[in-house]
């Protein structure tokens, strides 16, 4: 029970609270803020579960981005708002900020090999995120053109 709390629940809680802060910076109000925060927590939970199941973080990020994308598209359609805000904030915890930092540190310390490995890995994560999120948008656009046009 304790392990579930510290391994899954707390990281997701921190992720959603941090993303809610970002929502404030992006001038998101009211219920939109809760939706964004929940999306961020959900995305991170999927990432953690996928990481446990397969052990590959790029694939886990891809799955998490797909779930985030679906969640944001559904919320955007329910609230008749552009998907942009929800998606940007929900993907935030997955954005490889730590990767950029470590890459920079290795670069400054002159460890070129580790620098390049970290950098490439960071790019891989970023690409997985964007492809995952955009895949959902494209598929929904192709499958539901009428629905999309009606709601704009």
């Amino acid at each position: 029970m304790n392990a579930i709390l510290s391994d899954y629940f707390l990281p997701c809680l921190w992720a959603s609270l941090a993303s809610a802060g970002f929502g404030l910076i992006f001038n998101i109000h009211g219920r939109g803020l809760t939706i964004c925060a929940f999306g961020a927590g959900l995305g991170w939970l999927v990432y953690l579960l996928a990481l446990d199941a397969w052990g590959q973080d790029i694939f886990a990020a891809f799955l998490a981005a797909i779930v985030c994308g679906f969640y944001s598209e559904i919320m955007a359609r329910l609230r008749r708002c552009p998907v942009t805000g929800y998606l940007l904030v929900a993907l935030l915890p997955l954005v490889p900020g730590a990767g950029v930092y470590y890459a920079m540190q290795y670069c400054v310390q002159g460890e070129n090999e580790r620098f390049l490995t970290t950098l490439l890995h960071t790019f891989g994560m970023a690409a997985a995120l964007s492809v995952g999120a955009m895949l959902v948008t494209s598929v929904l656009r192709a499958l539901l053109p009428k629905f999309h046009r009606a709601i704009h």
Partner: peptide
């Protein structure tokens, strides 16, 4: 918002 983001990402 800035405070919240940075503080909770540090815990994260």
């Amino acid at each position: 918002g800035y405070w919240m983001t940075t503080a909770f990402f540090a815990l994260f």
